[in-house]
Simulated scan of single mutants.
Amino acid sequence: MSSIHILGIDLGKHCFHAIAHNRCGVEVLRRKFNRTQLLIFLSKIESTTIAFEACGGAHWLARKCSEFGHQPRLIPPQYVKPYVKGNKNDFIDASAIAEAAGRPTMRFVAVKSEEAQVIAAIHRVRDSYIKERTATMSRIGAILLEFGLSFPKGHAKMKSLFQWLAEQTVSLPKSLLCELISIHEHYKYLNEQIKTQDNKLQTIVNNNESAQLLKTIPGIGDLTSTLCIADVSSPSNFTNGREMAAWLGLVPRQFSTGGKTKLLGMSKRGNKHLRTLFIHGARAVLSRLETTGKVFGEWLVNLRATKPFNVVVVALANKLVRIAWAVLYHRQAFKAV
Results as ranks from 00 to 15, higher is better:
E99K: 08
A94Q: 03
I122S: 00
H123N: 09
K81S: 10
F147C: 06
K157C: 06
I9A: 08
I6Q: 11
E146Q: 12
N271L: 02
E185D: 04
E146R: 08
T203C: 12
N87I: 11
N22K: 12
N240P: 03
G86P: 10
L161R: 02
R288F: 04
A142R: 15
I40P: 00
N237W: 08
V125F: 04
N302K: 15
K112M: 03
L149Q: 12
S256K: 12
A110R: 04
L61Q: 06
P82K: 08
G69N: 08
D90V: 06
E132Y: 11
W164K: 11
G141W: 03
E67M: 05
A98M: 06
K13T: 13
A135L: 03
S171H: 02
T291S: 13
K268W: 11
Q332L: 14
I40L: 13
Y187R: 06
V321D: 01
Q332H: 09
P252E: 10
H59L: 05
N191V: 01
Q202T: 09
F238A: 06
A100F: 03
N199S: 12
F108Y: 13
E192K: 15
V321L: 00
Q117S: 00
A116R: 05
M106T: 00
N199H: 11
S171N: 03
A246C: 14
Y329W: 08
I143Q: 05
G281E: 01
I40R: 12
I194M: 07
A51M: 07
S113Q: 10
I92K: 15
P235M: 05
P76N: 05
I45R: 09
C24Y: 08
A156K: 15
K44P: 01
F33I: 07
D90H: 06
E99F: 03
A317H: 11
I97A: 05
H123F: 05
L149M: 12
E179G: 15
N191A: 06
K32A: 05
L316G: 00
K13I: 08
K112P: 02
T276R: 15
S128D: 11
S160T: 11
R124G: 08
T292C: 02
A120V: 02
F33P: 01
G148E: 10
E27I: 11
E179P: 03
E185V: 00
L303D: 02
V314N: 07
F296T: 07
T48H: 11
Q117C: 02
K81A: 10
I4P: 04
F33W: 02
A142K: 13
S236H: 13
P235K: 11
H14T: 15
S225K: 03
L227A: 08
P104G: 04
